[in-house]
Amino acid sequence: MNEFLLCAAGFILLTVAAGLFRVLRGPGDADRMMAAQLLGTGGIAALLLIASATPVAGVADVALGLALLAAFASVAFVNSVGADDGQAREADGK
C-alpha cells in the first residue's frame, strides 16, 4: 500500500512538473503564475501522500501552512501587474 501511495505522489509531482513547462513557455506571466499555483496544489497532495507512507511527524501542519499560503503568490502577482504607482510602465512586446 505504501508503494502505491508513493507512486501516486511521484505521479502527481511528475504531472505538475510537466505543467511547469508553462513556466518555460509562458507566454504571459499569468500562465507562469498558474503553473506555480498548480505546483502548489500538487505539492500539497504529494506531501500528504508521502506523509501517509513515511514516519515523519507534523507533516499535516506543514500542509496546512502551504494550503493557507496557496493563493499568496497569486494575490501578489495580480496585485502587481500593471502596478500603477508610476514606476512600472512596461512596454510589453507581446
Binding site: 499555483q37 500539497i44 500528504l48 500542509a63 494550503a67 496557496a70 493563493a71 497569486s74 501587474v81
Partner: peptide, 20 residues
C-alpha cells in the same frame, strides 16, 4: 487543508481571470 485550498483556488482563479 482541502477546504483552504478550495477557497484559495476559487479566489485566485477569479483574480487571475480578471487580470487577464
Amino acid at each position: 487543508i482541502w477546504a483552504l485550498v478550495l477557497l484559495s483556488g476559487a479566489a485566485s482563479a477569479q483574480l487571475i481571470g480578471r487580470a487577464l
